[in-house]
Simulated assay, not measured.
Amino acid sequence: MGAKETFDIPLSERAFQLLRGKILRCEYEPGEKLKMDTLQRDLGLSSSPLREALSRLAVEGLVVSDERRGFTAAPVSLEDLREVTRLRLMLDCEALSESIDCGDDQWEANIVAAFHWLSRIEERHGEGPLTLDADWTIRHKDFHMALLAACKSRKLIRLSSALFDQSERYRRLSIRYRVEPRQKAAEHGQIMEVVLSRNKAEAVAMLHDHISRTADNVAAVLEKRSVVT
């Protein structure tokens, strides 16, 4: 059933999802030239859907398009990380504020469920490198998006999701060089409890601090290793 569903997806969408995932996971390095023959071999797709996917990713800012040089995975920089973080702070805090105002019992239940699954993965890994675990990455985003899900603006939610992915690219890159992993379970649990208590001011402040400190830690690691400028 799963395989059938995968092949039911249009080729252009498959190309977009596969290529986007590889760029976000830094399987294609920031600044790496995305050669069509290499992409065709790696992804098993023809040039037409790949070109469409590359154009869509250029609009997202994950790919850079140049008439002479073709396509490259977007480079990384402290300036870009700060811009992504600034936008996340604006949009995610606004979305959380509205979610607390509008969220119902189902919204609360979804947050608890998302935190449960995230916590189970962290328990399974113990002190291991969970930050590179694909399941943890998915559950981590699920938790953050569950917090914002009651926001009435679908466009705001889509933008928050895209910005989360862009910040995730930086985080995954920093994990390669981080000596001491930062365990976030306690932070996520505290955010959940305050959100569920409907203390909007404290919840927004905690989310703001959580996003800011994550970005600061990532920037410090990448700058120390001269990965970003």
Rank of each mutant, 00 (worst) to 15 (best):
R41K: 14
L132M: 11
M145F: 12
H210Q: 09
L45M: 15
R51A: 02
L43P: 14
K22F: 00
V64H: 08
S153F: 05
V112R: 14
K155V: 07
A3V: 10
R120W: 05
M145V: 08
L18R: 14
P75V: 06
K4T: 08
F115C: 04
H208D: 11
S97L: 01
S161M: 12
E187A: 11
V227Q: 10
E13W: 02
A114Y: 10
R124V: 02
V63H: 10
R182K: 09
E108S: 08
T85Y: 02
I138N: 10
P75T: 12
V64A: 11
I157V: 02
Q166A: 09
L43E: 13
E202M: 11
P75M: 05
L45A: 06
T131M: 06
D133G: 05
R225K: 12
A146Q: 10
E27M: 12
L130A: 11
R225G: 00
V59G: 03
R198G: 03
K4W: 07
E60H: 03
S65Q: 14
E32I: 00
V179Q: 15
W117P: 00
G189Q: 08
G70F: 05
S119V: 01
S47Q: 14
Q40D: 03
C26P: 07
V64G: 05
T137D: 15
R25S: 13
D104M: 02
A162T: 13
D66A: 09
R25P: 00
Q166T: 09
N217D: 14
L11Y: 09
A109P: 01
A149K: 05
H188W: 04
E94I: 04
A185Q: 14
L163H: 13
T72I: 05
H125W: 13
E60L: 08
R82Y: 04
H210A: 03
P49S: 12
S167I: 02
L222G: 04
S97V: 02
E79K: 11
R154W: 01
I138E: 14
A95L: 02
I211V: 15
T72C: 07
M1P: 13
S55G: 04
A15G: 13
A146L: 06
E79S: 12
K141P: 04
A3E: 12
A220P: 06
R198Q: 10
L222P: 07
I100R: 00
E67Y: 08
R178F: 00
L96M: 04
E187I: 04
K141N: 08
S197F: 03
M36E: 05
L11M: 08
S48D: 13
F143N: 09
C93P: 01
G31T: 03
T38F: 08
H140A: 12
S55V: 05
V64K: 11
L163Y: 13
E187M: 03
M192N: 00
A162N: 12
W107P: 01
M1S: 14
E94V: 04
A162K: 15
R51K: 06
D165W: 09
